[in-house]
Nucleic acid binder design. Sequence first.
DNA 1: TTGAAAGCGATACCAC
DNA 2: GTGGTATCGCTTTCAA
Lengths: 360, 360
Amino acid sequence: MAVTAQKIAELAGVSRGTVDRALHNRGRVNPEVAARIQKIAAELGYKPNLVGQALVRSRQGAKLGVILQSTETPTMQIVQAGVRRAADELRASGGEVLLRELRGLDDELLLESIEELVSQGIQGLAITPNNTPELRQCINELHRQGVPVVTLNSDVPGSRRLCFVGQDSYRAGQTAAGLIAQLLPAGSKVLPITGHLNNTAHNNRLNGFLDTLLQEDMGRIRLLPFQPCFDRDDYAYEVTQHILRENHDLAGIYVASNGQAGVCRAVEEEGRKGKVKIVAYDLNEPNMRLLQSDSLGFVIDQEAFEQGYRPPYLLYEFLVHKKQPVRELLYTDLAIRTKYNSDLSGILTPFAEQTAWGKG
Amino acid sequence: MAVTAQKIAELAGVSRGTVDRALHNRGRVNPEVAARIQKIAAELGYKPNLVGQALVRSRQGAKLGVILQSTETPTMQIVQAGVRRAADELRASGGEVLLRELRGLDDELLLESIEELVSQGIQGLAITPNNTPELRQCINELHRQGVPVVTLNSDVPGSRRLCFVGQDSYRAGQTAAGLIAQLLPAGSKVLPITGHLNNTAHNNRLNGFLDTLLQEDMGRIRLLPFQPCFDRDDYAYEVTQHILRENHDLAGIYVASNGQAGVCRAVEEEGRKGKVKIVAYDLNEPNMRLLQSDSLGFVIDQEAFEQGYRPPYLLYEFLVHKKQPVRELLYTDLAIRTKYNSDLSGILTPFAEQTAWGKG
DNA sequence: TTGAAAGCGATACCAC
DNA sequence: GTGGTATCGCTTTCAA
């Protein structure tokens, strides 16, 4: 059995209360006594029992808020599943998670939802933010009020958020470049497709991609000028079709944004399936189908589930055990996936129910 | 605040103790009363608070044993790091993990170590087993005694282990095949290298690899007969050198076992670096260096850290909360990695220390 | 068959 | 400054 505060109290000849105050520097304790207690604790390697801590903190009950935007997209639905799972698990430990799911991107609605959750007394917040000055201000204000905020999926750099959980977009671009450079012979022509021209994440991916191909690959791959598709499959289709017809030697397409389904369709309709390698992002249901049908060769995954699952836990740990995240930027893993190492089961299916009585 | 046993007791007009016995079917409770209590619990969606449960169970204290073999290998050292992390975390929740690290594979030593740990009173055990009849018997005997066993990294199929945590070898082979099929043009010559001829995991990888290339790729890749290298770099070097000299058009090498460093060296010395694509397994320090130097194009990762980290938690959950693993075979993720999406930091470096006083 | 009470470990509060 | 005590939610005795 590990060493407890009680044991230290006995050894120091004081009460548990005094030990607690001494070790946590809460004051109101004789400096000499405090020193003695801390020495004993150090020698015994005392660590407070987290279960005991959690139990006492559960008096106030950790009430968390999560707001997701663009919940109509396949990837955000995986993020959602992650949040739900965390919410379920935390509920079993006395936590409470209020989840708001917003369709589309709407800064005003987001700010309203935050206010609503705050008025309901949440002690921590996780959001998929828009990178606007208003939101940055809002995050900083929450920080000032003692409400920690975790950004997920996209970040608000420089704000006083507790941390960010999501993809390292630049590295995601590099990874795609490294893959394509190995996939295609020297001199191959590649078309990069991006989304909105002002989407930071997509731009970072593109930069990582271009930098890597130009610098490290030393220009062995011939890059066509990148084309925006505004995250739309129909535009992506049109652009791809056009470029394919003009470049009969096109060997690869890099899709930094959404639109991969349109790209795949164009490639198939032009009879170039298999000849033109396509690399896109995210492991979700539609992409899974594209992988299975060999329309899409590779996706680079961003662990959407983890992006939803982790933040509530980070907030809980911070609130209940005062534990800071290990880093400010918690980048999710970048797995390269083909149809053979992709699996969504166990993520989208309802997970094993815990011991519960009734509907739960 | 979530619904507690106390609340149910009040609503049912009984005491907490009765509620507890009724909900857990411990008997000694009037059937009618039990029914009423269960109905109320179901309606309220009662779930016992895990923190409360854990605290009371901590009276007995969960004492776990972990035995790792081949700890001299780079990958097992990552597994070790995972075990250590879990041990640290569980200690903070009142758990205790006894870790035995064995060099090499030695069934006898393994069985001795198990006995030793059992005699020290462990209530659960995790091991990297050898697939021998003696060990299977030992696992079954432990099961009979009520000591759950988790196999990790390698399995003992058909034994009464609680579950297995590790790679799906067949799928790992398929993944390599899918990658190589996309990497190389039709007609490319590929050499498969394997380890010991009786290593089940390596054989399964090879089977997955061959099946996939022969069936799904429809023989577009020309396969050379596979060569064993007995997990040794020197043999792998020799074999590779020989084959390279006989096949000036060799386009790829698939390494299902250890030996990749020897393979890479041979390829470089023959001046074929970059021309011959190499796919191997595991993200560990030596492979990381091979990736960085572009000697190795891809590795397929098996989440060694997770293989060490998960089992203690599975045992803890099983012992403390009676929670069964979701599946019997818990396969780790198969991420395809290049130098751009590989990262070992945060795994091998000591992780952020928790609030502690002194040496810990 | 049931209730009352102790106790797991840590913390908060209130007397002294 | 300090010790005592109640408390978190649950399980487990021990009495009744």
